[in-house]
Design a protein around this nucleic acid. Structure first.
Length: 608
DNA sequence: GCCGTTTTCGGCCCGACTGTTTTCAGTCG
């Protein structure tokens, strides 16, 4: 590598950097499983591919890194000779003959249609073959015309549910979930830094940095010392391994799309302009306009290249975003709040320090182990929690109704409690016994009051009967909230971000019942869910609801998802003292020891 | 296709729900 901030032009061609990440490899095996099932292949063969897909997803390291070591690959659970060979073919060549053959044999659209809840491989093939449906738009149109209902086993009611999900996908367009977006952005930044090690300041900006739930493109801001470096970085950016089509590029700006059509933009500024430019590039358009107005009132000009003195056109020296906001007469506004939703007015005389941050979180109240459907042992999960500095952790495995999740029957729950209490002696993290208990379709609970009374923490959720009408669903959840033992309602809307529509439920009625019964509402931090939206959370704040932010971890590394939950809370303007897992362990236990009717008052008057 | 093993092939997680349902296939979690 040459000296002076320069990396050689095209020093590495994209072929050399073609490395597939675990999620793309996992998806290939999941796709194969779907297509095999659609073809009617042996169910166990299908399951083997599906298991391989799950195993790859849960690996704590990149599988591409061990692709040449067949022995190590074979040690992955569910990996036999055939799966090892397919993995090697896929990682080495970027393609898989089997997948290509399956796609050729089956009609277009199967992999898209099966993403809609209610449509499995067989129905997808029927819809594609008999009705020529291959897109969500065509699916929606076919249901609206009544044509889709001619397929086997499709009733009016199921068609209505499918239409709801299909319309969501149409509305969503090309946007992707924030979890995938962050992963894609990090991959780009990591590769760019490898190619150009002299990059000193680079940040993702735009809606990704604001942690919007769904994002349509990824904006990256980078600083460069001179024009020569700029050309080098633009060159590297436009030849990254995921570049499919370069839409535009000049000496300070470039845009490309990847194979899926997703857009990546980069903007270059001088180092001294970086802080101001980052503020400009992060906020929503209307947030930016508000800042421009504030700047104009101070004889300043706020642009994509930083903050300038209007008269002299000289750059204002700013070394941080805090500084930039300060120059405009505002407190620092967290990126997640920069939506022009009232945050600017508030930042005039409030330092926003009461808003929850990741540092405030002291424990996690929702996790799974291999006692039910978690991937790791209790000991592994506890070690991972300890590594992340958590003060306490609730082990909340599933209840009996969750049969596929291997829900714990009563005797197993008792054994589970004993195991948690024993591990608590040596864990280094305080452990809470608990359950994630199913709320059954009629609103009844999955364990007896006697069993529930013995647990430190009961979180309850729905996993079945998700197409109930709004009234039934709302009453069902409220019935569970009336129980003196149900501490937290978790993943209330059961949506899967970008994949499954939320259930029909009256959120305001639920929040009112939460306040009335003393029940806590979970902000589920999994980026696949972000189950209460920021809008919901903000409404809950207005109504006085108390929240828990929990990761719902099934894997050790999923504890890192906490930041997605915290970001949702920040987007919803949640105050730190309205989140129970910002309490110390002893205060949390004191909170849980109270009858539910006294808990909201306790929290209101609490210290930290 | 994987796994465990009485090492060469039989078993693999399953219960609930739904449908121009009638004895079962498809889907979900």
């Amino acid at each position: 590598m040459e000296i002076g901030g320069i990396c050689p032009l095209n020093s590495l061609r994209r072929d050399n950097l073609l490395s597939m990440d675990n999620s793309s490899i996992s998806k290939v095996f999941a796709d194969i499983a779907v297509l095999m099932q659609a073809k009617g292949e042996n169910v166990f063969k299908v399951r083997a591919h599906s298991n391989a897909s799950d195993a790859i997803k849960s690996l704590p390291f990149p599988i591409a890194g061990i692709v040449d070591d067949a022995t190590r690959l074979g040690e992955i659970p569910g990996f036999g000779e055939a799966i090892v060979e397919k993995t090697q073919e896929l990682v080495r060549t970027g393609r898989l003959g089997l997948l290509e053959r399956l796609l050729e044999e089956l009609p277009d659209g199967v992999l898209e249609l099966v993403q809609i809840p209610g449509i499995g491989p067989k129905t997808a093939v029927a819809a594609a073959t008999e009705l020529g449906i291959s897109t969500f738009e065509q699916l929606a149109a076919s249901i609206e015309s009544g044509e889709f209902q001619s397929l086997p086993r499709i009733s009016k009611k199921s068609a209505a549910q499918i239409l709801r999900h299909a319309k969501m996908r149409v509305d969503q367009g090309e946007r992707i979930g924030i979890g995938s977006a962050i992963e894609a952005a990090n991959n780009v930044i990591t590769e760019l830094k490898t190619r150009c090690p002299n990059i000193s300041q680079i940040e993702v900006a735009g809606s990704v940095r604001r942690m919007s739930e769904l994002v349509g493109n990824i904006d990256i801001l980078c600083s460069v010392p001179d024009n020569e470096s700029a050309i080098t970085i633009i060159d590297a950016f436009t030849t990254l391994s995921n570049v499919y089509d370069v839409l535009s590029h000049d000496d300070k700006h470039a845009v490309f799309t990847d194979r899926a059509g997703f857009k990546f933009s980069m903007y270059l500024v001088r180092p001294e302009a970086f802080a101001g430019a980052l503020v400009y590039a992060t906020g929503s358009i209307s947030h930016g306009i508000r800042l421009e107005e504030l700047a104009a009132g101070k004889q300043l000009k706020f642009t994509s290249d930083g903050l300038f003195d209007s008269a002299s056109e000289t750059l204002e020296p700013l070394d941080s975003e805090k500084n930039a906001y300060g120059r405009l007469g505002l407190s620092f506004i967290p990126p997640e709040m920069r939506e022009d939703a009232g945050e600017i007015e508030r930042a005039v005389d409030d330092d926003l320090s009461s808003i929850v941050t990741s540092d405030d979180i002291r424990g996690d109240l929702h996790s799974h182990t291999n006692w039910s459907d978690g991937r790791y042992s209790m000991e592994d999960m506890v070690a991972a929690a300890l590594e992340r500095g958590l003060e306490y952790l609730a082990i909340t495995d599933h209840s009996p109704s969750a049969t596929v999740a291997n829900g714990l029957k009563p005797d197993m729950l008792l054994a589970h409690n004993a195991a948690v209490r024993e591990l608590d002696q040596t864990a280094g993290v305080r452990l809470l016994t608990g359950t994630e208990m199913d709320i059954k379709p009629d609103g009844s609970l999955d364990y007896s009051d006697e069993l529930l009374a013995d647990l430190d923490l009961v979180i309850a959720s729905i996993h079945s009967g998700m197409d109930q009408d709004e009234d039934t669903m709302t009453h069902r959840v409220i019935a569970a909230m009336e129980s003196p033992h149900v501490d937290v309602i978790c993943h209330l809307t059961a949506r899967l971000l970008g994949k499954r529509s939320p259930v029909l439920i009256d959120i305001d009625a639920i929040f009112a019942a939460a306040v009335r019964t003393g029940t806590v509402m979970e902000i589920n931090a999994s980026p696949d869910r972000l189950d209460l939206s920021a809008e919901h959370v903000r409404r809950g704040m207005d109504m006085g609801v108390i929240f828990a932010i929990s990761t719902d971890s099934h894997h050790t590394w999923q504890f890192d998802n906490m930041r997605f939950g915290v970001s949702t809370a920040i987007r919803g303007w949640v105050e730190s003292n309205r989140v129970i897992n910002t309490l110390s362990y002893s205060n949390l236990m004191a909170f849980l020891a109270l009858p539910k009717s006294e808990r909201y008052a306790f929290n209101k008057s609490r210290g930290q």
